Simulated assay, not measured.
Amino acid sequence: MDVRTLAKLLRETEQQHGAYEASAPEHHWSDWYAAYMTARQNGRGPEEAATDAAQYMQTLPR
């Protein structure tokens, strides 16, 4: 992945995370970002990736 593409994906991830963070329990942003970005790199759309990331967050210990 080139720098320009990665920067675009990071900006998208930041925007999607904002919606999640507004109602989520305390968490570390990097866990959500990693799950979201992995889903996007695997061909999932933005909404699907956000759902995948939220589901991933539920698997982490609190």
Rank of each mutant, 00 (worst) to 15 (best):
M1R: 06
D2A: 03
V3G: 04
V3Y: 06
V3N: 11
R4W: 12
R4H: 09
R4N: 11
T5D: 07
T5I: 12
L6K: 07
L9P: 08
L10A: 11
L10I: 10
R11F: 13
E12D: 11
E14Q: 10
E14S: 09
E14T: 09
Q15G: 13
H17P: 08
H17N: 12
G18T: 08
A19I: 07
E21C: 15
A22L: 04
S23T: 09
A24C: 01
A24Y: 02
P25N: 06
P25M: 03
P25Q: 10
H27D: 05
H28L: 09
S30N: 04
W32K: 00
W32E: 01
W32P: 00
A34S: 07
A35P: 01
Y36N: 00
M37S: 00
M37K: 01
T38R: 06
Q41Y: 03
Q41L: 12
G43I: 03
G43N: 04
R44P: 01
G45Y: 06
G45T: 15
P46N: 13
P46Y: 08
P46R: 11
E47G: 14
E48A: 13
E48H: 12
A49L: 11
A50W: 01
T51C: 14
T51G: 15
A53D: 03
A53H: 04
A53G: 04
A54W: 12
A54H: 11
Q55F: 05
Q55T: 10
M57V: 05
Q58T: 11
Q58V: 08
L60R: 15
P61C: 04
R62G: 09
